[in-house]
C-alpha cells in the first residue's frame, strides 16, 4: 500500500510542486486548501504524514496542528510544517503547536524527499502497510 501524505496548503503552485514531487516518489497525495478541510480529511483518511503550511486563511497552521494533536486517533501522525515564515521563533512556535518537524520554504527538490523520510520511520511505514 502506498504511503499516504496529506498536504494542507493554500498556494496552488506550491501545492502542485509538492504533489508532483511526492507522487513521482511513489506517495499517494491528498490535499486540502484550508485548515478546516485539512482537519476533516486527516480524520477521514488518517495519512502517514501531514505537510502543513502555516500561513493559511481563516485558521493558521499553528491552530490546525493543535486541533490535530487534540484528536487521539491522529496523535501518532507526524506533522511537518512547511512554511515561508522565517522570523525568529517560527520553528519553536511550530514545534510548540505540535509539529514534528519544520522545513523552510523554498523547498529544495534535491533534498525534499530525504527530509521527509526522517519523519517516516520504516517501522511506521511497515505498520501502516499492515493495516
Amino acid at each position: 500500500m502506498k504511503r499516504r501524505v496529506l498536504i494542507i496548503e493554500d498556494n496552488e503552485q506550491n501545492l502542485y510542486l509538492a504533489t508532483f514531487i511526492l507522487e513521482r516518489h511513489g506517495f499517494e497525495v491528498c490535499a486540502a486548501q484550508d485548515g478546516e478541510a485539512g482537519i476533516a480529511v486527516a480524520a477521514r483518511i488518517e495519512p502517514d504524514l501531514i505537510l502543513l503550511d502555516i500561513q493559511l486563511p481563516v485558521m493558521d497552521g499553528y491552530a490546525v496542528a493543535r486541533v490535530l494533536r487534540s484528536n487521539p486517533d491522529l496523535a501518532r501522525i507526524p506533522i511537518v510544517a512547511v512554511t515561508s515564515y522565517a522570523m525568529a521563533g517560527d520553528r519553536e512556535k511550530a514545534l510548540a503547536a505540535g509539529c514534528t518537524g519544520y522545513i523552510e520554504k523554498p523547498i529544495n527538490p534535491d533534498t525534499f524527499i530525504a527530509q521527509l523520510e526522517q519523519y517516516l520511520p520504516e517501522t511506521v511505514q511497515n505498520n501502516g502497510g499492515g493495516e
Binding site: S84, E104, K105, P106
Partner: peptide
C-alpha cells in the same frame, strides 16, 4: 516580505 518573496521563490527553485 520574507513570506511573499519566498512563496514565488519556492515555485521557481522547486520547478
Amino acid at each position: 516580505m520574507s513570506h511573499e518573496l519566498r512563496t514565488p521563490l519556492n515555485s521557481i527553485i522547486g520547478f
